[in-house]
Amino acid sequence: MSTNTRLSLAAPAKINLFLHVTGRRDDGYHFLESLVVFTETGDRLIVEAREDLTLSITGPFAQNLTAARADNVVLQAAEALQYKASTTLGAHITLEKNLPVSSGIGGGSADAAAALRMLSVLWHVDLHECCLKDIGIAIGADVPVCLNARSAIMSGVGDMLRDVDPPPHCGVVLVNGAEGVATPAVFKARKAPFSDIGNWRTPANFGAFINALKSSKNDLSDPARGVSPVIGDVLAALSVTEGCALVRLSGSGGTCFGLYADTNAADKAAAAIKALHPEWWCLSTVFRDGPLAVTTV
């Protein structure tokens, strides 16, 4: 591969359609069961060969991140891959940060996963999928599921994945109340009993899909609202939009989502929320269905 090669890969937003806390390990990590899907909205990474390893950040949320290694999971992932592959090759990584930070939609995890994928290509690293997953889980619980960005049931501490059928085509509205939410604080605030593990199968019909989701929940919703009360306002705003079939918090917050039978209804709902709350981050999107592809730019 030429030293002038520039590679690009999307880092799509992750949505927890449900999230059940099923137990807790002695070391404090929690066991989860979550239906994870991905959207066409997300960040994007570009990598190109360099002698050393550097990172620049662009995009609307660039100011909320630092390029320092200690605070950036993209550089942590790159250095972990260097170590695992026993390589001294470098790269310049450009992160286009389009998603809010600390928002419950896996932005950092998807970015780290994309870095692992692209640098493996750039550096001609041929590690088994399990090795990439092991690197990912050491960085964050959501990184393994973000490596392939496919619909999956995520369980354990994020290390156990079961592929499931993608959701039926529908409209999705994502809304964030412009307030970052710290995941440890949400788990600390959670007092409810643990949930039972289910046996999810994805219905092909939108109505049946919504009904199936209604039998589940996000166990972190109540504690997240205690940590960040604006989440309650966001959920309320989504719930009164025309055609909204389901409203829920993703992950530990603070991004919430609404599901609609079609993209036209979702577009109208997003426009209505933006008009009422211009200070919030809000957009209409769809679920993605298909593999991620590294492209040359």
Rank of each mutant, 00 (worst) to 15 (best):
A275C: 07
D233L: 15
N211L: 10
G198L: 15
H20P: 06
L9V: 14
H30K: 13
K97V: 10
C256Q: 07
G42R: 10
P12E: 06
S252T: 12
V297R: 15
V227S: 10
V21L: 11
L19G: 05
E242D: 14
K191C: 11
F206L: 11
P166K: 03
C170L: 02
R288I: 08
N4R: 14
G90P: 14
P12M: 13
S239T: 14
G90H: 07
E33F: 07
H124V: 13
A178I: 00
D134T: 13
N199L: 10
L9C: 14
T39H: 02
L89H: 08
V230Y: 11
A261P: 06
D196M: 08
S195N: 07
S151H: 02
A245Y: 00
P291F: 09
L55E: 02
E279Y: 06
V230C: 12
D52K: 15
L213H: 03
W280P: 00
V101C: 03
L235N: 09
F209D: 05
C282F: 05
T295F: 12
S86T: 09
V74N: 10
P229C: 11
T22K: 05
S86N: 14
R288P: 04
N72R: 03
A113P: 08
V173Q: 05
G226K: 10
P168V: 13
F38D: 00
F257T: 07
A189V: 02
A272T: 15
H92E: 04
G140Y: 03
K214P: 03
I139Q: 06
P203I: 09
S284L: 10
V286Y: 04
C130W: 03
C170V: 01
A192P: 01
G251I: 09
L75E: 02
F18Q: 12
E96Q: 13
P168D: 11
M1P: 14
A62R: 04
D219W: 07
A212T: 15
R117V: 01
T255N: 00
V101G: 03
A272G: 08
N4P: 10
T255K: 01
K188D: 07
S56W: 11
